Computed example of a mutant assay.
Amino acid sequence: MNASRLSLFVFLFALATTLTGCDAIAGIFKAGAVTGIVAVFVVVALLFFIVNKMRGPRP
């Protein structure tokens, strides 16, 4: 396992342990449905970007 994958696992573990599901859902419903959809889209896009950067250039 290389250092970039290890750092990804550490980041995801820290994210999963500090933000519980119920707190996230409660915050989304307080802010509104549209804000929640945008927030989910941004998080998924950010994770996709990070994973693609870690994989490196594809031939």
Rank of each mutant, 00 (worst) to 15 (best):
L6V: 11
P59M: 03
L15M: 09
L12F: 12
S7R: 14
L12W: 02
R58K: 13
G27C: 04
G32T: 06
M54W: 00
A33W: 05
A26L: 11
L6A: 14
G32C: 08
F48Y: 06
A39T: 15
V40F: 10
F29E: 12
G32I: 05
L15I: 01
G21C: 03
R5N: 14
F48L: 07
M1F: 10
G56H: 01
N52D: 09
P59C: 01
L46H: 04
F9R: 12
M54E: 12
F29A: 09
L15F: 08
V43F: 13
P57I: 00
L12C: 10
L47Q: 01
V34M: 12
V51G: 03
G56P: 00
D23R: 15
A14F: 11
K53L: 10
R58G: 02
A26I: 07
L19Y: 13
N52Q: 11
V40E: 01
K30N: 05
F41S: 15
T35N: 11
I37Y: 08
V44C: 10
L12Q: 08
L12N: 06
T35Q: 12
P59A: 08
R55D: 07
S7I: 09
C22G: 12
S7G: 01
V38W: 08
G27R: 07
V42S: 12
F48I: 03
L15E: 09
I25Y: 03
K30W: 04
L6G: 06
L19F: 14
T18R: 06
F9H: 08
D23Y: 11
L15N: 05
I25S: 09
A26T: 10
V38F: 13
F13H: 10
R55Y: 03
N2M: 07
L6D: 10
S7K: 12
F48H: 05
L19E: 13
T17S: 14
L15Q: 07
T17L: 11
D23S: 15
C22D: 11
G36D: 02
L8P: 00
T18M: 04
N2Y: 07
L8Q: 08
D23E: 14
A14P: 00
L12I: 02
P57A: 05
V38Y: 11
V51Q: 10
P57E: 06
V34L: 15
G56K: 00
P57W: 02
L8S: 05
G36R: 01
I25K: 07
K30G: 02
V40D: 06
F41P: 00
N2I: 04
L19W: 14
S4A: 15
C22E: 10
K30Y: 03
L6W: 10
I28G: 00
K53C: 04
I50M: 11
A26G: 04
P57Q: 04
V43P: 02
P59I: 03
T18D: 08
T18P: 00
A14I: 10
D23A: 14
V10S: 11
V43E: 03
S4R: 13
A39P: 02
A39R: 02
V34P: 00
L46N: 07
I25D: 08
F48W: 04
S4L: 10
S7W: 05
I25Q: 09
G27M: 06
F13R: 11
R58N: 07
N2P: 07
L19K: 09
A24D: 08
L19G: 02
S4I: 13
K53E: 05
